[in-house]
Simulated assay, not measured.
Amino acid sequence: MMRSFSVIFLFLFSVTCNAKNLAIDPDNLFPQVKLETSMGVIIVELDRIRAPLTVDNFLTYVVSGEYDDTIFHRVVSEFIVQGGGYNENFELKKVNENIVNESGNGLKNEIGTIAMAKERHPHSANRQFFFNVNDNTSLDPGRKWGYTVFGAITEGQEVVDAMALVTTDYSDVMGWEDVPLEPIMLIKASLLPAL
């Protein structure tokens, strides 16, 4: 128990220090991020009160330019639009440490929200995120860990809706279906000035 507490404390300390080093204002409880994509602009408002670790992790990738020139590599109609992990050549981008799952924060995987992608292990989210294009209650916590929602779209829902309709197919490179035939680029992600 003490070892788990120590690991969580060190993780929180490192995330906080990293955020401070990158000039992320810790007092801005609802930071906004502008995502300039090849299909239009999306603005999301993040909820640092409900998902502080997830928001600071996401902002670390934003302000360091790590989301720039990545793709939305997975599009499942009436489900999700996922990106943030690969460049246009399907090469995996640099990954920081995994973060603690905050899916029990009361935010739901509803249409228009942004959430962290993860693997089967509950605390395996790191840099990939997705937009919910439906009310995805199956992704919320219940008898198992859910997917952490950490914000919502305030502008550009129509852009995400258009992304959800693109033609997808199986990719030999990725080894899965639901890959857009024409790449959808995340050209630039930027932290907007505090209101």
Rank of each mutant, 00 (worst) to 15 (best):
R74V: 12
K118S: 15
V179T: 06
T168A: 10
S77M: 00
V179C: 01
I99P: 11
V166L: 07
I184P: 02
T167V: 12
A117K: 02
T113R: 14
F131I: 08
A164W: 00
E177I: 08
G151D: 11
D178E: 10
F79H: 06
G106K: 08
G104F: 01
F90D: 03
F129H: 02
G156Y: 05
D169A: 15
R143A: 07
T137A: 11
P141Y: 11
A117D: 08
V100N: 02
N87E: 04
E158C: 01
G156D: 05
D172H: 07
P180D: 01
V159N: 08
W176T: 09
D169V: 01
G84W: 01
L165C: 00
H121S: 13
R127N: 15
K108H: 11
S138T: 07
D178T: 02
G112E: 11
N126P: 00
M174P: 01
V160G: 10
G175Q: 01
V160R: 09
E97W: 03
K118R: 15
D135P: 13
G142V: 13
N87W: 06
F131Q: 11
A115Q: 13
D135H: 13
G156Q: 07
N87H: 06
G142W: 14
E78H: 11
P180K: 02
E158G: 03
N101E: 11
N109M: 01
W176F: 13
S103C: 13
A162I: 03
E155M: 10
N87G: 08
V76M: 14
M163A: 09
E97D: 11
G104D: 13
I80A: 06
T168E: 05
P183W: 00
